[in-house]
Design a protein around this nucleic acid. Structure first.
Length: 111
DNA sequence: CTCTTGACTGGTT
DNA sequence: GAACCAGCCAAGA
């Protein structure tokens, strides 16, 4: 795996099932770094430049807050996309966040 | 090479 | 449970 640090992150984010969300920390932990959660967010910044659109709207911080919505082309779009997938968002915060939380580790279990 | 910044997290108070 | 502080990793100036 000589892929760039970001490419690994993008891969995981793309694998997030529809209607599910995950946190930067879980992704970082899945990659092994664990504490590089900030890099995940940093990579998300570049996600919009990727050819295969990255579902960055499914990635939120541990509190379930749409911290990165302001970085989208249209901040309102992030919340709209989440609600479109059946995820309720109130005050930039995901309702029943834990219920929609998806851990990348389960992917390894399914494979 | 050093300093600053960032879509974060965990532990303390 | 909210607010504050410190730790960690990578990229850019």
């Amino acid at each position: 795996m000589d892929k760039d640090f970001y490419e690994r992150i993008f891969d995981v984010v793309r694998l997030i099932p529809k209607g599910k969300v995950t946190t930067y920390g879980h992704i970082a932990r899945c990659l092994g770094s664990g504490r590089s959660s900030r890099l995940v967010g940093y990579a998300m910044n570049l996600s919009h430049r990727q050819d295969p659109l990255i579902p960055a709207h499914r990635v939120v911080n541990r509190k379930g807050l749409l911290t990165g919505k302001m970085h989208f082309n249209d901040p309102n779009e992030m919340q709209r996309l989440l609600e479109d997938e059946g995820i309720l968002v109130k005050g930039d915060q995901i309702v029943n966040f834990q219920d929609h939380l998806w851990d990348p580790a389960v992917l390894a279990d399914e494979l």
